[in-house]
C-alpha cells in the first residue's frame, strides 16, 4: 500500500511517500533527514505524539505548562489528559521537573516547561 504523509517531526513538514504492508514499512521517500523515516515507520504502525498541556498548581492562580518527555501513543492522548488533569502540584517548581513519572507505564515522563 502507498500513502502520502506529512512528517511532523519538525516544523519543516516534509511530504513523504510511504510504501507499506500492514504495519511493516517497505520504503520511504521525500524525507530530508533520518527523522522522517523514523516518523513514517511509527506512523503506520503505532502513531505517537508529543503531548503538551497544563497542570493545576496548589494555591496558585496560574497553570503550570508541561510536556511529555517523549512521544506517546496517539489513540490514548485523551486518557493521558485525564490522568494529568487529576493531579495538583505544589509550588515552587523548577523548569524540567518531573511532574508525573512514567505516565500509564509508557516509560514517558511529564515535565514542567516553566518555573513556578
Amino acid at each position: 500500500m502507498r500513502k502520502e504523509l506529512i512528517c511532523i517531526g519538525c516544523p519543516m513538514g516534509c511530504p513523504l511517500v510511504v510504501d507499506f504492508e500492514g504495519k511493516n514499512l517497505i520504503h520511504v521517500s521525500g524525507n530530508t533527514c533520518p527523522g522522517g523515516e523514523k516518523y513514517a515507520k511509527e506512523e503506520i504502525s503505532n502513531p505517537k505524539r508529543i503531548l503538551t498541556t497544563t497542570v493545576k498548581v496548589e494555591n496558585r492562580e496560574e497553570m503550570l505548562s508541561v510536556k511529555s518527555s517523549a512521544t506517546l501513543p496517539k489513540e490514548k492522548l485523551l486518557n493521558y489528559m485525564k490522568i494529568i488533569n487529576g493531579i495538583t502540584c505544589k509550588a515552587p517548581i523548577k523548569i524540567g521537573t518531573i511532574i508525573i513519572k512514567n505516565i500509564d507505564n509508557t516509560g514517558v515522563n511529564i515535565l514542567a516547561t516553566k518555573n513556578c
Binding site: 516544523p11 508529543i50 503538551t52 498541556t53 497544563t54 505548562s65 523548569i95 516547561t113 516553566k114
Partner: peptide, 18 residues
C-alpha cells in the same frame, strides 16, 4: 505551551515557555 520553537536556534524542539 505547545512545541515547535527553537529548532533552528537551539537545535532542539522546545515549547514556548522553554
Amino acid at each position: 505551551i505547545h512545541n515547535g520553537f527553537g529548532l533552528h536556534k537551539f537545535k532542539e524542539e522546545l515549547t514556548g515557555p522553554e
